[in-house]
């Protein structure tokens, strides 16, 4: 590879798709490893969200950066390809990225037991247990 190519690859603009692909794939892997030891619905939600996010980050955003998918803007009238395709991909991107974060967030919240009450130790029961212990001792 020529020197120019190497520097081009090292620049931020060219590294960004690589970074996105790596992050998307690793997110999928870690979500899978977390989901392996979770409840059924937790793992399902986490995997669904991670799959959507990995599709968005590792596939769609690099394709956008490479210019294969055209960017959609509400006021734009002229597209190189078809306007309907640009709009369709835009819709898919919106759904995948936003719903992906939502579903992954719900899965992670269930994994962290965010939606169930905190396991606070009952001080009275603890005190009673300690007293009983002392009595026995």
């Amino acid at each position: 590879m020529s020197n120019g190519g190497f520097f081009l690859m090292g620049s931020i603009e060219a590294m960004r798709p690589v970074f996105l692909i790596v992050m998307g794939v690793f997110m999928l892997i870690f979500a899978w490893r977390l989901a392996r030891n979770s409840d059924a619905w937790t793992s399902r939600l986490m995997m669904a969200g991670a799959l959507m996010l990995a599709f968005g980050y590792a596939l769609m955003l690099p394709l956008y950066e490479a210019g294969i998918l055209e960017r959609y803007a509400p006021g734009r009238m002229t597209y190189e390809g078809s306007a309907a395709a640009a709009m369709g991909w835009h819709a898919i991107k919106l759904v995948v990225m936003n719903a992906g974060w939502l579903v992954f967030g719900i899965g992670l919240a269930m994994h962290a037991k965010l939606l169930s009450p905190a396991p606070v130790a009952n001080p009275r029961r603890e005190a009673r247990a300690r007293n009983a212990h002392e009595f026995i001792a």
């Binding site: 509400p74 709009m87 919106l94 936003n98 967030g105 994994h111 965010l114």
Partner: peptide, 25 residues
């Protein structure tokens, strides 16, 4: 698609949930 309020709200709520879950963890 053009206003995107619902989907943007989904994304923001999801990120907030991730933040809360992470703090909890």
């Amino acid at each position: 698609i053009q206003n995107g309020l619902l989907l943007d709200a989904f994304g923001v709520v999801g990120l907030g949930l991730i933040g809360l879950a992470a703090v909890r963890l």
